[in-house]
Amino acid sequence: CKPMSYEEKRQLSLDINKLPGEKLGRVVHIIQSREPSLKNSNPDEIEIDFETLKPSTLRELERYVTS
C-alpha cells in the first residue's frame, strides 16, 4: 500500500470534515477496526492523527470519502 503524501493527507482531512454526521460513524469504524491502539477510544471524541495512521487505513478512508 502506497504511503500518502502530506498533500493527500491534507485533502483527506478536508474531505472527512465535509462529510455529513451520519457518515462520520463509518469513518470512526474504519479507523477503529484497523488501528488497535484506537479500538477503545470514544467514537464521539476520536481525534484523527493522520501521521500515526497506517497507509492502509488512510487508503481505506480515502476510498470511503471519494465513493
Rank of each mutant, 00 (worst) to 15 (best):
residue 55 P to G: 08
residue 59 R to Q: 01
residue 37 S to D: 13
residue 32 Q to Y: 05
residue 37 S to C: 07
residue 43 P to I: 08
residue 66 T to L: 09
residue 64 Y to A: 06
residue 57 T to Y: 01
residue 14 L to G: 04
residue 27 V to N: 02
residue 16 I to G: 00
residue 42 N to K: 15
residue 15 D to K: 14
residue 62 E to S: 13
residue 55 P to V: 05
residue 19 L to S: 03
residue 19 L to M: 08
residue 21 G to N: 12
residue 18 K to L: 08
residue 9 K to H: 04
residue 23 K to G: 14
residue 63 R to G: 11
residue 37 S to W: 12
residue 43 P to L: 12
residue 37 S to L: 12
residue 11 Q to T: 05
residue 27 V to C: 05
residue 42 N to T: 07
residue 22 E to K: 10
residue 23 K to N: 13
residue 51 E to H: 14
residue 1 C to G: 12
residue 45 E to C: 06
residue 66 T to I: 07
residue 49 D to F: 02
residue 14 L to Q: 12
residue 50 F to P: 13
residue 51 E to D: 14
residue 25 G to A: 15
residue 63 R to S: 11
residue 62 E to P: 09
residue 48 I to T: 04
residue 8 E to L: 01
residue 1 C to K: 12
residue 29 H to W: 02
residue 44 D to A: 08
residue 52 T to H: 06
residue 53 L to W: 00
residue 12 L to S: 01
residue 39 K to Y: 09
residue 60 E to Q: 06
residue 7 E to S: 08
residue 30 I to L: 11
residue 3 P to A: 04
residue 46 I to Y: 12
residue 1 C to D: 15
residue 39 K to C: 10
residue 55 P to I: 02
residue 27 V to P: 00
residue 52 T to P: 02
residue 30 I to T: 06
residue 50 F to K: 02
residue 65 V to M: 10
residue 12 L to P: 00
residue 9 K to T: 04
residue 23 K to M: 14
residue 7 E to H: 06
residue 4 M to D: 01
residue 6 Y to F: 13
residue 45 E to V: 06
residue 22 E to H: 06
residue 36 P to Q: 07
residue 47 E to P: 07
residue 7 E to M: 04
residue 60 E to D: 09
residue 38 L to Q: 07
residue 20 P to D: 14
residue 45 E to A: 09
residue 21 G to M: 13
residue 6 Y to E: 13
residue 53 L to Y: 07
residue 24 L to A: 09
residue 45 E to P: 12
residue 31 I to Q: 00
residue 51 E to P: 03
residue 64 Y to H: 07
residue 56 S to I: 04
residue 66 T to V: 10
residue 53 L to R: 04
residue 23 K to P: 06
residue 10 R to W: 02
residue 51 E to R: 02
residue 15 D to L: 15
residue 58 L to D: 06
residue 13 S to F: 04
residue 52 T to Y: 10
residue 52 T to C: 04
residue 8 E to C: 00
residue 63 R to M: 10
residue 30 I to F: 14
residue 58 L to W: 05
residue 44 D to Q: 13
residue 4 M to C: 04
residue 61 L to W: 05
residue 10 R to E: 05
residue 20 P to N: 14
residue 30 I to Y: 03
residue 22 E to Y: 02
residue 40 N to F: 12
residue 67 S to F: 06
residue 41 S to Y: 14
residue 37 S to Y: 11
residue 51 E to W: 03
residue 29 H to L: 04
residue 59 R to A: 02
residue 42 N to M: 10
residue 46 I to V: 12
residue 43 P to C: 10
residue 55 P to A: 06
residue 1 C to F: 09
residue 22 E to F: 06
residue 63 R to Y: 07
residue 39 K to P: 06
residue 16 I to L: 09
residue 19 L to C: 04
residue 33 S to Q: 09
residue 10 R to S: 01
residue 18 K to Y: 02
residue 66 T to Q: 15
residue 30 I to M: 11
residue 47 E to L: 12
residue 22 E to R: 02
residue 46 I to H: 09
residue 25 G to V: 11
residue 39 K to E: 08
residue 28 V to Y: 14
residue 54 K to P: 04
residue 59 R to Y: 07
residue 16 I to S: 01
residue 63 R to V: 08
residue 38 L to I: 13
residue 43 P to Y: 10
residue 47 E to D: 12
residue 17 N to P: 08
residue 64 Y to Q: 03
residue 17 N to R: 10
residue 48 I to S: 06
residue 20 P to L: 04
residue 1 C to I: 05
residue 42 N to V: 04
residue 8 E to K: 02
residue 65 V to I: 09
residue 6 Y to I: 13
residue 35 E to D: 06
residue 26 R to I: 04
residue 42 N to S: 11
residue 49 D to E: 11
residue 42 N to R: 13
residue 44 D to N: 11
residue 64 Y to K: 02
residue 24 L to F: 12
residue 13 S to W: 05
residue 43 P to M: 13
residue 18 K to D: 05
residue 11 Q to H: 03
residue 24 L to Q: 11
residue 65 V to R: 06
residue 5 S to V: 00
residue 16 I to V: 06
residue 18 K to I: 00
residue 43 P to V: 15
residue 11 Q to P: 00
residue 21 G to Q: 15
residue 33 S to N: 09
residue 18 K to E: 01
residue 32 Q to H: 03
residue 17 N to G: 08
residue 49 D to K: 09
residue 1 C to R: 10
residue 49 D to N: 13
residue 36 P to R: 08
residue 18 K to W: 00
residue 55 P to H: 08
residue 27 V to S: 00
residue 9 K to A: 01
residue 3 P to I: 04
residue 8 E to R: 04
residue 21 G to R: 15
residue 35 E to W: 01
residue 12 L to I: 05
residue 20 P to W: 04
residue 42 N to Q: 11
residue 61 L to E: 07
residue 3 P to M: 05
residue 24 L to W: 14
residue 13 S to P: 00
residue 49 D to C: 09
residue 67 S to W: 09
residue 22 E to I: 04
residue 64 Y to R: 02
residue 12 L to Y: 00
residue 11 Q to R: 11
residue 6 Y to P: 15
residue 19 L to N: 03
residue 28 V to Q: 15
residue 43 P to F: 12
residue 5 S to N: 08
residue 66 T to S: 14
residue 59 R to G: 01
residue 4 M to F: 03
residue 55 P to Q: 06
residue 62 E to M: 02
residue 34 R to G: 09
residue 27 V to A: 08
residue 12 L to A: 00
residue 21 G to D: 13
residue 21 G to W: 08
residue 12 L to H: 02
residue 39 K to I: 09
residue 38 L to N: 01
residue 16 I to Q: 00
residue 59 R to M: 07
residue 45 E to R: 09
residue 26 R to K: 13
residue 18 K to F: 07
residue 67 S to K: 09
residue 65 V to L: 07
residue 38 L to T: 11
residue 25 G to C: 13
residue 60 E to C: 09
residue 8 E to W: 00
residue 41 S to T: 12
residue 12 L to C: 03
residue 27 V to M: 08
residue 45 E to G: 13
residue 67 S to N: 11
residue 32 Q to A: 06
residue 13 S to N: 08
residue 33 S to P: 05
residue 12 L to E: 00
residue 49 D to W: 00
residue 1 C to P: 14
residue 60 E to N: 07
residue 36 P to S: 05
residue 35 E to S: 03
residue 12 L to Q: 01
residue 24 L to T: 06
residue 27 V to G: 01
residue 61 L to S: 07
residue 5 S to Y: 01
residue 36 P to H: 07
residue 12 L to D: 12
residue 47 E to Q: 12
residue 14 L to Y: 10
residue 11 Q to F: 05
residue 27 V to D: 08
residue 17 N to S: 10
residue 7 E to V: 02
residue 30 I to H: 06
residue 10 R to K: 09
residue 4 M to P: 01
residue 55 P to S: 08
residue 19 L to T: 01
residue 57 T to H: 01
residue 9 K to G: 00
residue 30 I to S: 00
residue 30 I to C: 06
residue 51 E to Y: 03
residue 26 R to C: 03
residue 20 P to I: 00
residue 57 T to N: 02
residue 11 Q to D: 04
residue 21 G to S: 14
residue 63 R to L: 09
residue 31 I to K: 00
residue 64 Y to F: 12
residue 48 I to F: 12
residue 63 R to F: 09
residue 43 P to K: 06
residue 64 Y to L: 05
residue 44 D to L: 07
residue 66 T to K: 15
residue 38 L to V: 11
residue 62 E to T: 05
residue 31 I to P: 01
residue 20 P to M: 02
residue 18 K to T: 08
residue 64 Y to V: 09
residue 12 L to W: 02
residue 40 N to K: 11
residue 34 R to L: 14
residue 6 Y to R: 14
residue 67 S to P: 12
residue 36 P to M: 06
residue 38 L to P: 02
residue 48 I to P: 04
residue 36 P to N: 08
residue 29 H to N: 15
residue 4 M to W: 04
residue 42 N to C: 10
residue 52 T to N: 13
residue 11 Q to A: 04
residue 29 H to D: 15
residue 37 S to E: 13
residue 10 R to F: 02
residue 62 E to A: 08
residue 62 E to V: 04
residue 60 E to G: 07
residue 39 K to Q: 14
residue 64 Y to E: 09
residue 40 N to Y: 13
residue 58 L to H: 05
residue 21 G to F: 14
residue 57 T to L: 01
residue 28 V to I: 15
residue 41 S to E: 14
